[in-house]
Design a protein around this nucleic acid. Structure first.
Lengths: 324, 324
DNA sequence: TTGAAAGCGCTAACAC
DNA sequence: GTGTTAGCGCTTTCAA
C-alpha cells in the first residue's frame, strides 16, 4: 500500500490539509511545521498521488503526444525532445501511434481526454472539423498542420523544397518527378505547391506522381511510373519514400545518382548514412517549441499563435547532373 | 466542463451507481435500464474519468515504458509494438527516456508510480538493488535484463553473437575485435561472453575493446584502438557503434568490407539500408511479449517467468574474407 | 497558521 | 435490479 497524505499527517502530528499545503502552497505554512512535515514525508517515502490531486485541481500534469507512426524515423527525435522538455516542467507524456488512421487517432484522443491537460498532434490526419470538435475537450497544439484557430508549430518544408528544386535545376535537370505523400498531409500540400512554383521559375517540368504510401514500399512501388515519365531526378515526400525508390532503382540495375538523382525530405539518420540529399526538418526543435506552446496555453490560458521553423536542403551524394 | 456520471444519471433518471454499473459491470443491470443509460451517455458524449475510477479501483489503466534513448533506432519498433498491444487491452502508455542515466530512470519511475499499474523497463541501467526496491511500488517487467525474481523478456543476443563469430571465422578471420557497450548492459555482458566462447571454439583471437558509448560517436572513437590491434574484423555492441566505426574507417581511406569486416547488432532499418551484416533483435515481438507478461502480472497477480527470444545473424555486404 | 469539512468523479459494499 | 452510503487521496473553502 502506497503511503498517503494521511500517513504523513499522522507521523508529523498535523492535519492532512497542512500536509497538502506544504506540498502545493508551501508559503502558507509555518517554516517549522513545514520542516517537520517534509521530514516525515521524506522518511516515509511519500509521493503525492497525481491522479487524486487531478481530481480536485483539474490538472493532471500529463500530456498526450499523438503521432502517425512511431517507427517512422522522422518521429523519434521529436518524441524524445518533447518528452524531455515536458519532463523538465514536471509533466508526463502519453505517447500513442495512430498507424496513420484518422479513426484510431480520434478514438485515442477521446479516450485520453480525461487524463491529460493537453495534447500534441503531430502530422495529424484528422479533418479540421474533427480537430475543432475535439479541441473543445482537450487543448491542442498541432505540428505540421494548420487548422484555423489552433496554435501550431510548422516546419516550413516549402523553403527546403524550393532549395531542392533549385539545386536540381542548377545541376541541369529539366524533368523532375515529385513523389507525393498522403493527401491529408499539410507537409505534402506545401511540398507540392512549393515544388511546382519553383519548377516553373526554373523552367523545369514537374511530374507529379502519387499519392504514395509514406513508406519504403510506397517509394519502391512508384518506380515504374517514375521511369515512364522520363524524369532525370526525383523529389520524394520523405526519406523513407526516397530510400525505397533508390533501392528499387538499384535492383533494376539503375545507379543513383548517375542514372537518376533522388532527394528526400526529413533528414533522418538513415538518410545521412545512405548519403541521401534531403531537406532537413528541425524535428527536435519542433518538439520543444510545441511543448512550450502547449504548456503556455495550459497554464496561462492564452492561445499563442504559430511558430514557423525553417527547413533547408542538405546536399549529399544522391544528386548529380543528369546522365548524357 | 466535462460531462460526468452525474449528468448521465440525471438524464436517464437513475442513480449514479446504476450508471457506474452499466459501465463497469453491465450484467448487473436490467437490459432496458442499461439501454437508457447508454443512450443518455452517448447523447451527452460521456466518457468515464479514468483517474477518478483509478482512485477507487486502484487500477489506472496506464502503463509506463522506460527506455534509455527513444532516438536510438533500436527502440522505436519496440515502443510502437508495446503501445499498440497495450492499447488493444485498453491501456495507455507513458513513454519516458532516461538518457542512459540511472538517476533519471529512478526518479522517472518514482514519479510515475502512482499513475501506472506497471512498467516496462527496457535495457534498464539501474542496479538490481534499486530495481528490487522500486518493484515494491510498481510491478515491473524488464526487457534485456535479468534481475532475480522479476519477469523478463530476453532477446538472446548470445545465439546471434555466436553465429556472427562463426561467420567471421568461416570467412577466414583470425583476429576479431569486439567493440563492447555499457558495462551495465545485460546485452553487452552476454555479447562479450558468447563472442569469447565462440572465438575460442574457432581458434579466433578476440580483442575486447571498450566500454564504448553506444552511439555512432562511440564507434568512431574506437577506430584507432581497433586498428592498433591488427584485427581484420569487428563485432560491435550495436548498429550505431558499427556504423560510426564504418564511417570513421571510410574517412580514413579504409574500405568495408575489403579492408575490414564489420558486424553490428540490432538489425535496425539503418543497418539494412547501409548493407550492414548484423544480428537481428526481435524488438517488436519483445515489446508485445513484455506487455503480455505485464498485463498478466497485473490482472492475475501471478509472476510469470522469463521469455527468451532468439536472435540470428543477417549476413549482408559489410563482411567478406580478410584482405591479402 | 492551522483544523474541519465538503467535494472532485467514480466504485463498492450493503440494504432494500 | 437499484438506491444509499462511504470512501479512494487530495485540495480548498471557511472558521477558528
Amino acid at each position: 500500500m502506497a503511503v498517503t497524505i494521511k500517513d504523513v499527517a499522522h507521523a508529523s502530528g498535523v492535519h492532512v490539509s497542512t500536509v497538502s499545503r506544504t506540498f502545493s502552497a508551501a508559503h502558507l505554512v509555518n517554516a517549522e511545521t513545514r520542516a517537520r512535515v517534509l521530514a516525515a514525508a521524506h522518511q516515509l517515502g511519500y509521493r503525492p498521488n497525481r491522479a487524486a490531486r487531478a481530481l480536485s485541481t483539474r490538472r493532471t500534469g500529463n500530456l498526450g503526444l499523438i503521432v502517425a507512426d512511431i517507427a517512422n524515423p522522422f518521429f523519434p527525435p521529436l518524441i524524445k525532445a518533447a518528452q524531455a522538455h515536458a519532463r523538465a516542467s514536471d509533466h508526463h507524456v502519453f505517447v500513442a501511434d495512430t498507424d496513420e488512421q484518422a479513426r484510431v487517432e480520434e478514438e485515442l484522443i477521446r479516450s485520453m481526454a480525461t487524463q491529460v491537460d493537453g495534447a500534441l498532434l503531430v502530422a495529424s490526419r484528422l479533418s479540421n472539423r474533427v480537430i475543432n470538435e475535439l479541441s473543445a475537450d482537450v487543448p491542442f497544439v498541432v505540428v505540421n498542420r494548420r487548422p484555423p484557430g489552433l496554435p501550431a508549430v510548422l516546419m516550413d518544408v516549402a523553403s527546403g523544397a524550393r532549395q531542392a528544386v533549385e539545386h536540381l535545376a542548377g545541376l541541369g535537370h529539366r524533368e523532375v518527378a515529385l513523389l507525393s505523400g498522403p493527401r491529408a498531409s499539410w507537409t505534402n500540400q506545401n511540398l507540392e505547391r512549393a515544388a511546382a512554383e519553383e519548377a516553373e521559375r526554373h523552367g523545369v517540368r514537374l511530374h507529379r506522381l502519387g499519392p504514395n504510401q509514406p513508406t519504403e514500399e510506397g517509394g519502391a512501388a512508384a518506380a515504374p511510373d517514375l521511369l515512364a515519365t522520363g524524369a532525370t531526378a526525383a523529389l520524394a515526400y520523405n526519406d523513407l519514400v526516397a530510400l525505397g525508390l533508390v533501392g528499387e532503382l538499384r535492383s533494376r540495375g539503375l545507379a543513383v545518382p548517375d542514372d537518376l538523382s533522388v532527394v528526400g525530405v526529413d533528414n533522418t539518420d538513415t538518410a545521412r548514412h545512405c548519403d541521401l540529399t534531403t531537406v532537413d526538418m528541425p524535428t527536435a526543435a519542433a518538439g520543444r517549441a510545441a511543448i512550450d506552446l502547449l504548456l503556455r496555453r495550459i497554464t496561462s490560458g492564452d492561445a499563442p499563435g504559430t511558430v514557423t521553423l525553417d527547413t533547408r536542403l542538405i546536399v549529399r551524394g544522391s544528386t548529380a547532373p543528369p546522365a548524357g
